[in-house]
């Protein structure tokens, strides 16, 4: 049976896929941060639209916290780190932007095939949640390994974290609120530390190319 909320949810999930693909092809770091913010907002809205038994106060509370963190606080941190450095664009990644988008398509196909083999625990959820979650989990490490700038690598980490959040949404119908808040806090602290680290790298070396950090200075 196709309900209207399911159609909305499918639309939301397709938009998540699109933000992922655009992120793979985006060369401007500011653009990437904005995409991460959009992705966070979409992800936070997901449980509200996917709810089976109406809205509960706990669900709304979690959604507000998630959106607040992923769509406002994280991007704000990243923008601050971006302003501190000189680099505005990811000019010369290890894997080019068009090639990254095509690699994204391959990852999407792999995620779809893989999720067809996995048992779907979260029955009633849209069938697309699992492929999208796996796609994001694959995209995160790809971004981390294929980009030079530390900031893009942080973006990859956030995508990975978003993917795990979506994965948790499918696998565990009912996560204790405390656990979810704990995960969000972890991600928050990790991002805080990484933002500070990028800031320091910028101050120390005048760039944030992570692949140049293995050569000693002086």
């Amino acid at each position: 049976m196709i309900s209207l909320s399911q159609t909305w949810m499918d639309g939301l999930l397709v938009m998540l896929m699109l933000t992922n693909l655009i992120l793979l092809g985006a060369s401007r770091l500011g653009h990437g941060i904005r995409l991460i913010a959009i992705q966070g907002a979409l992800l936070g809205a997901l449980p509200i639209l996917g709810g089976q038994h109406g809205w509960t106060a706990r669900m709304l509370f979690l959604a507000v916290i998630t959106i607040g963190l992923k769509a406002v606080v994280f991007p704000w941190f990243l923008h601050r780190a971006l302003r501190a450095g000189e680099a505005r664009r990811e000019d010369n990644p290890f894997v080019g932007h068009t090639a990254s988008v095509l690699a994204g398509l391959v990852m999407l196909t792999v995620a779809t095939c893989l999720s067809a083999r996995l048992p779907t625990v979260g029955a009633g959820h849209s069938m697309l949640v699992m492929p999208v979650a796996l796609f994001m989990i694959l995209t995160g490490p790809f971004l981390i390994t294929s980009r030079r700038k530390a900031l893009s690598q942080i973006l990859g980490y956030v995508v990975l974290e978003n993917g795990m959040y979506a994965f948790g949404l499918v696998m565990l119908q009912d996560v204790p609120a405390l656990v979810e808040l704990g995960i969000l806090l972890d991600a928050f602290v990790a991002l805080f530390v990484m933002g500070a680290a990028v800031h320091q790298i910028n101050r120390e070396f005048d760039h944030m190319d992570a692949d140049q950090l293995d050569s000693l200075k002086g």
Partner: peptide
């Protein structure tokens, strides 16, 4: 321009993947 057209091809492929699933 090639990036725009590759983007369009990606959209089509995405639709195909969604429908083949």
């Amino acid at each position: 321009v090639p990036q725009l057209l590759v983007g369009a091809a990606v959209l089509s492929t995405l639709a195909l993947v969604l429908l083949l699933r």
